[in-house]
Amino acid sequence: MGNAVRASNHVCGPFLNLRGLLAGVSAAALMALSTGTTKAAEWMGATSTDWMNASNWNGGVIPVGQAVSIASAAVPAQDEAVLGVTGPVSTSAGNTLVGVSGSPAGILTIQNGSSLTSLSARIGQGIGSNGIVTVTGSGSQWNISGGTFAIGLSGDGILNIENGGQVTTGGAGTQLGINATALGTLNVSSRGLLQTQALRGSIFGASQANFDDGILRATAVNATFISGFPSLNSTCSPAG
């Protein structure tokens, strides 16, 4: 069964397999997050949900290495941007924003073994925004190379990692529910994997992290790898 962990800054080792619920609200100094100055490619969803269809982006060009903004589309049924509609696709983006302002939600799904590499990322950017990202299926990956990965900056942000999907952050770690108006939710299930330098609960907003046969892996030695959650009641067991 492994050892029970009941402290928000207690780590079972560099590789964790957590089952249970982390939830809480905390207050701390607000960290600076880079916004970037390059105009973002905007998701329009004019033709379909396919990321790789140029007509779905403003300007009619598929963004490569460019900042990306995914919010509610011109066609509501196509709010969701899907990377890997028919099979594996690999691409890159700059600062990636999912859920910028207002509703309905901006939605991004990475599936079918596809890979997206982003310079930085935020889900639920502005006040009143809703953003949902799902990384699902074996080989499906979202790699975020820099900055603090924000799940709920000023709005509601949800990240689902499931069915063997993987998310890796290479910057300062993963932060949930940053500003007072934010709600950040992390769901990792069915051998989904989050690799990050740190997992932090809310600063001024609210946050919740749920692990159900999900894997959390530390990418660096960090005495406060998990912080900002007033209570932690999970089971740590060897990775399978």
Rank of each mutant, 00 (worst) to 15 (best):
G2I: 11
G2C: 11
A4Q: 14
A4W: 12
R6N: 13
A7S: 15
N9E: 10
P14H: 10
L18P: 04
L18G: 07
L18V: 11
L18A: 13
G20M: 11
A23E: 10
V25L: 09
S26I: 01
S26C: 06
A27W: 02
L30W: 05
A32R: 15
L33D: 08
T37P: 00
T38Y: 07
T38N: 09
W43A: 07
A46K: 13
T47F: 06
S48Y: 07
W51K: 06
M52Q: 11
N58R: 13
G59E: 09
G60S: 09
V64D: 04
Q66E: 08
A67F: 00
A67W: 02
V68R: 01
A71G: 15
V75H: 00
P76L: 10
P76C: 05
A77L: 11
E80T: 15
V85F: 00
V85E: 02
G87D: 03
G87W: 05
P88W: 04
V89R: 09
A93I: 02
S103H: 05
Q111S: 11
S115D: 08
L116I: 08
S120D: 13
G126Y: 09
G126M: 12
S129I: 07
G131V: 02
I132K: 10
I132S: 09
V133K: 13
T136V: 14
I144Y: 03
T148K: 06
T148V: 11
F149C: 05
F149E: 06
F149W: 15
A150E: 07
I151A: 03
I151H: 04
I151K: 03
G155K: 05
E162H: 01
E162I: 08
N163M: 05
G165T: 03
G173T: 04
G173C: 06
G173D: 05
Q175V: 03
L176T: 04
I178P: 00
N179A: 13
A180P: 01
T181P: 05
A182K: 04
A182W: 03
A182S: 15
L183K: 12
G184R: 07
T185R: 15
N187Q: 10
V188L: 01
V188H: 02
G192L: 09
G192I: 07
Q195E: 09
Q195S: 15
T196P: 01
Q197F: 04
A198C: 01
L199E: 05
L199P: 00
R200D: 01
I203E: 04
F204Y: 11
F204K: 08
G205V: 11
F211H: 08
I215L: 14
A220R: 13
V221E: 10
V221T: 13
F225W: 15
I226A: 00
S227F: 01
S231R: 12
L232Y: 00
C236M: 01
C236P: 02
P238V: 02
G240C: 03
